[in-house]
Computed example of a mutant assay.
Amino acid sequence: MSPSSRFTARRRSLAAAGAAAALALALAACGSSSSSSSMPGMDHGSKSTASSSPSASQAMGDMPGMDHMATGNGLSDTKDGYRLTSKDATLPSGKQAAYRFTVTGPDGKPVTDFALDQTKRMHFYAIRSDLTGFQHIHPTMTDDGTWSADLGSLTPGSWRMFASFTPAAGPGKGKDFVLSRTFTVPGNATKTPLPAPAGSTQVDGYTVTVKGEVMAGMAHPLTVSVGKDGKPVTDLQPYLDTYAHLTAFHEGDVAFAHLHPTTKVTDDHGGPSLNFHAELPTSGNWRLFLQFQTGGTLHTAALTLHVG
């Protein structure tokens, strides 16, 4: 073979090797496309980059109250085959009344095995359509799966009740659900205007301050501080495995959200500042209800938070 022929053959060999290397790189890139979700803006179909990250999920699981996070806004009575049923379409006004309901599973049978979530097997909420009259109750269940929630005095109007639970068995085992139904309290209903957004409110002599700029659909820290007589409160007692329980309802459609605490409970000396993981799905005004306990007494503070 002449020198020129050997040179030509060598060039062809190098070209082939380069093409093979380029093809290998292309195939590697295609095979690793699933990892592109870790890049900003590439996590299609997920709520947020943090929620799709295994390390973030594990970190949340280490936070008090973060091992259970219900999804959705709670405005349906069915999800994944589970259904909330009740024969109580109306309840009397001006006096205590029991609301009875049942949760049925995908097999159509009443669910009777529920896991503990913040020390309770069922959390029941009732709120009027104008976001007044908030009640948070832990109902009792009979052997046949019928729950009974003893409500306090109700004012006339349209109400929505929410049932928050986690099945301990069956297809939905370990998954958190929030289902709801509406009921009516007959009488002359007068709508109460929603108070304007504010950074603080007072209840039972305590001042509750909320700080944090929350954006719709984005996880954001929220800080709640409790004071009394101008001094920070440091004797908050554990309530439902946390120093404060925070629930939110959206103005207009009464969508539900539970803001999860991240402050670790150690003893009866919680406060004055508490941290929450806030992820409110919709912009607009939300009515926040903060429940905390001191000296064996439960206090419920309410304020309006605007979400951009």
Rank of each mutant, 00 (worst) to 15 (best):
residue 292 F to D: 05
residue 259 L to N: 06
residue 291 Q to E: 11
residue 121 R to Q: 15
residue 74 G to F: 02
residue 270 G to H: 12
residue 36 S to G: 01
residue 200 S to K: 10
residue 200 S to T: 12
residue 16 A to V: 13
residue 90 T to G: 02
residue 192 T to C: 01
residue 205 G to L: 03
residue 225 S to F: 03
residue 180 S to I: 00
residue 71 T to M: 07
residue 21 A to S: 06
residue 57 S to Q: 15
residue 255 A to M: 06
residue 270 G to S: 11
residue 102 T to F: 10
residue 230 G to V: 10
residue 157 G to D: 02
residue 296 G to Q: 08
residue 208 V to P: 05
residue 306 H to A: 11
residue 88 D to C: 04
residue 260 H to A: 08
residue 51 S to F: 09
residue 26 A to M: 09
residue 93 S to M: 04
residue 9 A to W: 08
residue 246 L to M: 13
residue 180 S to F: 00
residue 169 A to G: 03
residue 90 T to V: 10
residue 158 S to N: 14
residue 278 A to H: 02
residue 137 I to Y: 01
residue 81 G to F: 04
residue 304 T to H: 06
residue 307 V to N: 01
residue 265 V to A: 06
residue 49 T to M: 13
residue 82 Y to E: 03
residue 123 H to G: 04
residue 22 A to R: 07
residue 111 V to K: 06
residue 103 V to I: 15
residue 147 W to M: 04
residue 268 D to H: 09
residue 265 V to G: 03
residue 47 K to G: 10
residue 194 L to R: 07
residue 101 F to K: 00
residue 20 A to T: 08
residue 18 G to Q: 10
residue 175 K to W: 02
residue 22 A to N: 02
residue 27 L to W: 11
residue 208 V to G: 07
residue 88 D to A: 13
residue 126 A to I: 03
residue 7 F to C: 06
residue 194 L to Q: 11
residue 141 M to V: 07
residue 297 T to Y: 00
residue 245 H to L: 14
residue 305 L to P: 01
residue 151 L to F: 08
residue 218 M to Q: 15
residue 21 A to H: 07
residue 204 D to T: 02
residue 71 T to W: 02
residue 100 R to D: 07
residue 43 D to T: 02
residue 178 V to I: 11
residue 7 F to S: 13
residue 287 R to E: 08
residue 271 G to W: 09
residue 123 H to F: 05
residue 59 A to E: 13
residue 157 G to K: 09
residue 39 M to E: 08
residue 130 D to R: 03
residue 19 A to N: 01
residue 20 A to P: 00
residue 128 R to A: 07
residue 121 R to E: 15
residue 106 P to W: 14
residue 57 S to W: 05
residue 132 T to N: 03
residue 154 L to S: 07
residue 205 G to E: 03
residue 200 S to C: 04
residue 49 T to K: 10
residue 236 L to Y: 03
residue 229 D to G: 05
residue 149 A to T: 07
residue 233 V to E: 13
residue 279 E to I: 08
residue 61 G to V: 04
residue 237 Q to I: 04
residue 61 G to M: 15
residue 6 R to F: 02
residue 82 Y to K: 06
residue 213 E to F: 05
residue 25 L to C: 08
residue 169 A to H: 12
residue 166 T to K: 11
residue 111 V to N: 08
residue 273 S to I: 05
residue 142 T to E: 15
residue 275 N to H: 14
residue 133 G to C: 04
residue 94 G to H: 10
residue 7 F to A: 15
residue 12 R to W: 15
residue 249 F to W: 11
residue 212 G to C: 12
residue 209 T to G: 07
residue 141 M to G: 06
residue 161 M to E: 09
residue 86 S to V: 05
residue 131 L to P: 00
residue 232 P to G: 03
residue 86 S to M: 10
residue 257 A to V: 05
residue 10 R to M: 12
residue 256 F to Q: 05
residue 67 D to H: 10
residue 104 T to M: 04
residue 157 G to I: 07
residue 127 I to F: 01
residue 15 A to Y: 08
residue 34 S to C: 02
residue 137 I to S: 01
residue 35 S to H: 06
residue 291 Q to F: 02
residue 49 T to R: 12
residue 236 L to R: 10
residue 103 V to K: 01
residue 17 A to L: 14
residue 93 S to A: 15
residue 125 Y to R: 01
residue 270 G to V: 13
residue 272 P to N: 13
residue 306 H to W: 03
residue 127 I to T: 11
